[in-house]
């Protein structure tokens, strides 16, 4: 069914259902994402947007449907999810840096252990990434000594160190003090400009406007509307989206 041509979506989500107990967190969600596309998912809390994102790298196991990443079914237990996850960088709301490791060790751990890079190669790669996210001077401190914004930028560098094809962002700025949101968004904009495929759950509408190729609005586990940010923000069709935008803008 998957032909290996350039038009094939890099992520293909088909009729996905996910239940938490009796609650359907995702109801028959289908979505194709093209390589290089920047998709921003918005919606009220509890709408299932984080669940959808976390399903893509199987941090949540879906109950029905299929999710193909680069043509491989992530729910198929014959595929090695640990290998597939290397291609799916993830950034969390709570950063989740490894507190017992320095910034440099956080970024080099996975490349050294999983990609079998030499320490030198991994550190060169890490320094380049830390420079890119603007904290190369903090390489040898522990995460607890960094601000939230700095920690999140390290977390982005850590995910990029595996050279993933896709980056997933799960509300990356929601746990940050307002004055630190900008520095993290700058890094993400920079990343988007480099052509990285990005799926981002966020409440930052400014970011969605500037970066997104497509904005997706979710509520009650369903995709209610999607389109270009211009179209969605200026001419929302679905009443729930209109109501949502009124509340937050």
């Amino acid at each position: 069914m998957m032909e290996k041509d350039n038009a094939a979506p890099i992520i293909s989500i088909k009729n996905v259902w996910k239940y938490f107990g009796r609650n359907a967190a995702l109801q028959d969600v289908s979505l194709d994402i093209a390589a290089g596309e920047r998709v921003v998912v918005i919606g009220p809390s509890g709408s299932g947007k984080s669940t959808l994102l976390r399903s893509i790298n199987r941090l949540e196991e879906i109950d029905r449907g299929s999710i193909l990443v680069q043509g491989q079914d992530i729910t198929d237990h014959h595929n090695d999810i640990n290998v597939m996850r290397r291609n799916l960088g993830m950034v969390f709301q709570q950063f989740n840096l490894f507190p017992h490791k320095t910034v440099l060790q956080n970024v080099t751990l996975a490349p050294v252990k999983l990609l079998r890079l030499s320490r030198k190669e991994a550190e060169d790669r890490a320094f380049a990434l830390l420079k890119r996210v603007g904290i190369s001077d903090k390489a040898n401190v522990y995460p607890a000594q960094l601000s939230g914004g700095q920690q999140q930028r390290v977390a982005i560098a850590r995910a990029l160190a595996m050279q993933p094809a896709i980056m997933l962002f799960d509300e990356p700025t929601s746990a940050l003090d307002p004055e630190m949101v900008g520095e993290v968004l700058d890094v993400m904009v920079n990343l988007a400009e480099d052509g990285m495929t990005m799926v981002c759950v966020t409440h930052e509408m400014g970011f969605a406007r500037t970066v997104a190729d497509r904005v997706i609005f979710m509520d009650h586990g369903q995709i209610l509307e999607m389109g270009t940010p211009d179209r969605l923000f200026t001419a929302p069709r679905h009443p729930r989206l209109r109501q949502f935008l009124n509340q937050i803008l």
Partner: peptide, 20 residues
Amino acid sequence: GQTEAARSLGFNRFQTMFYV
């Protein structure tokens, strides 16, 4: 979150336990 961060990088359960 520590487990999730490690797993999302591609560590398996065993590696997650011993490295993280």
